[in-house]
Simulated assay, not measured.
Amino acid sequence: MVAFLVYLAAALAEIAGCFAFWAWLRLGRPAWLIVPGVASLVVFACLLTLIDTDAAGRAYAAYGGIYILMSLVWLWMVEGHRPDRWDLVGVTVCLAGSALILFAPREG
């Protein structure tokens, strides 16, 4: 459960940081948005180090499903576009894959 919460926070930080650049470059918002965007990306990177796993690549791979979930939440809550059924099916498959990567029993 702790890993899931860390992943949720990391995803929110990453999406917010990337969206700051999107807002500046694609939506014509002020360039100063890059400053909190970069800070948010630093928080994202630090949060991923809190995942209890023996390999960074495994933590990042499992994170992918949570990132997709939070991206769809962002799509809906911030951008005002409701995810469709294919978004929901896709994120379900991704979350199952993330759980398998993170929680599968490992040898040695």
Rank of each mutant, 00 (worst) to 15 (best):
R58A: 01
G37K: 13
A96P: 08
R29D: 12
V93R: 05
A61P: 02
P36Q: 12
A104F: 04
F4I: 15
F44Q: 08
W22R: 08
D84V: 08
V2A: 03
I68W: 02
E79N: 07
G37P: 12
F21I: 12
L8I: 15
A61F: 09
V43M: 08
V42D: 04
T92Y: 00
L12A: 11
L48Y: 09
V93N: 02
G65T: 06
R26E: 05
G57K: 05
G64T: 13
G108D: 06
L27E: 15
V73N: 01
P30T: 15
F19W: 10
M77L: 08
F19H: 06
S98H: 00
Y67V: 10
A59S: 15
A96K: 01
G64L: 10
D87M: 05
H81I: 13
V73C: 05
V91R: 00
F4T: 14
L48R: 11
T49E: 02
I34F: 15
L102R: 15
I34N: 12
G65I: 07
A99K: 01
V38N: 04
L100H: 08
I15E: 08
L88Y: 09
I51C: 03
T92S: 13
S40K: 09
A59I: 12
R85P: 03
L50T: 03
G57M: 03
L47Q: 06
L47C: 05
L100M: 12
L88F: 02
W22F: 13
A45Y: 02
S40A: 14
L88R: 13
A11W: 14
L27T: 03
L27S: 12
V2R: 11
F19D: 04
V73Q: 03
A3P: 00
L100K: 01
P36M: 09
D52F: 01
A9V: 11
A96F: 07
G97T: 11
V35M: 04
P36H: 10
A23S: 15
F21P: 01
F21R: 01
G90Y: 06
G37Y: 11
W74Y: 05
F4H: 13
R85Q: 13
D87Q: 10
V35G: 09
T49F: 04
A104L: 12
G108M: 03
F44R: 06
V43R: 06
V91K: 00
A23I: 02
I15S: 07
V43N: 05
E79G: 05
V93C: 13
V2S: 14
M70G: 07
V35Y: 07
P105F: 13
V38C: 04
I66P: 00
T53H: 07
G80Q: 07
A31D: 05
D84P: 03
A11H: 14
P30L: 11
A10M: 11
C18N: 14
F44E: 06
P83L: 01
V2G: 02
D54C: 01
V35L: 13
R82V: 14
E79F: 08
S71C: 07
I101M: 09
P30R: 08
S71K: 04
G65F: 08
A96G: 15
A104G: 13
